[in-house]
């Protein structure tokens, strides 16, 4: 088992219930896409999985670690096994790309190594390898405030690739990338998870990206799970239902009206890659 949420509810400090009675389970190595309208609770759900927020009701177990039980040492150990790709990459502008990538392993490195790396990056080949996979090897020693928004987001992804976590959480990981690069990056995350047998949970606003690359699709609406199906069983009516609050158009990468021949989900992704 990779994680198991049981009747989880999350109420924010202002009293707003972002998640209600939510139950979701995943085995090791599964690749799940979260889709749903804005404000549905995708980020909230990922925050609970990432141990950033503790559920206010119900139980959450992540990588065999009951979250409701909290000891800081064990929690830090657990967290070093979880990698998160954030929507806006949380990287200081004045940091160099190499340092930002190496920071992915701060939870695993001994203290001396983390300290020494501030003076001289101790794993340059490792950082370069991760950056090569997102096509940014030439920026290894650049400063992050010299990168474009999309490049910075890819640095955030390289950091997670370098961290090699057992559970990858991604919150709209490609929102700053153009369609071609977005597809390539999603494929990269999926391939990385597949190769290492890691679990991947990604929230996406482009339905075609989700259907084309993930095996399991979880629709979230109003803090609850609307559906939880293999990609091949997710049809257009179901999607229109999910996005009812946002009008008739479904959010996609490629702006063609007939993007989704049911059951041939991969085509949408292919098309997205061509435009």
């Amino acid at each position: 088992m990779s994680f198991c949420l049981n009747g989880v509810g999350l109420t924010h400090a202002n009293g707003f219930a972002a998640l209600k009675e939510l139950t979701l389970k995943a085995e090791k190595g599964e690749r799940i896409a979260l889709i749903g309208p804005s404000g549905a609770g995708k980020t909230s759900l990922l925050s609970v999985l990432g141990t950033a927020l503790a559920p206010t009701v119900g139980t959450a177990e992540v990588l065999d670690f009951g979250q409701n039980f909290r000891s800081t040492v064990a929690l830090a150990k657990l967290r070093s096994r979880i990698g998160t790709v954030h929507q806006s990459p949380p990287i200081p502008g004045r940091q160099r790309v190499v340092t930002a990538v190496l920071a992915g392993k701060l939870g695993q490195w001994p203290a001396w190594k983390s300290l020494a790396s501030l003076l001289y990056p101790l794993d340059i080949p490792g950082a370069r390898a991760a950056l090569e996979r997102v096509d940014l090897a030439d920026k290894l020693f650049a400063r992050c405030d010299q990168l474009s928004g999309g490049q910075l987001q890819r640095v955030g992804i390289a950091r997670v690739l370098y961290q090699q976590p057992e559970l990858i959480l991604a919150d709209e990981p490609v929102s700053a990338l153009d369609p071609t690069l977005a597809l390539a990056t999603i494929r990269l995350l999926v391939a990385d998870a597949e190769a290492r047998g890691a679990t991947l949970v990604a929230s996406l606003h482009a339905v075609d990206l989700a259907l084309g690359n993930f095996t399991r699709i979880v629709g979230v609406r109003a803090g609850q799970i609307a559906f939880d199906l293999p990609a091949s069983e997710v049809g257009v009516p179901l999607l229109h239902d999910l996005y009812a609050s946002e009008g008739d158009e479904l959010p996609v990468q490629a702006h063609e009206s007939h993007f989704l021949p049911p059951a041939a989900a991969n085509d949408a992704a292919t098309r997205a890659a061509c435009c």
């Binding site: 967290r79 070093s80 939870g107 300290l115 961290q163």
Partner: peptide
């Protein structure tokens, strides 16, 4: 955000501060 993100990736508080 940067420090918070590093803590979520398991970095000890001091290093989340230094790097983030």
């Amino acid at each position: 955000a940067p420090g918070q993100a590093l803590r979520l990736a398991g970095a000890p508080g001091g290093f989340a501060f230094l790097y983030g």
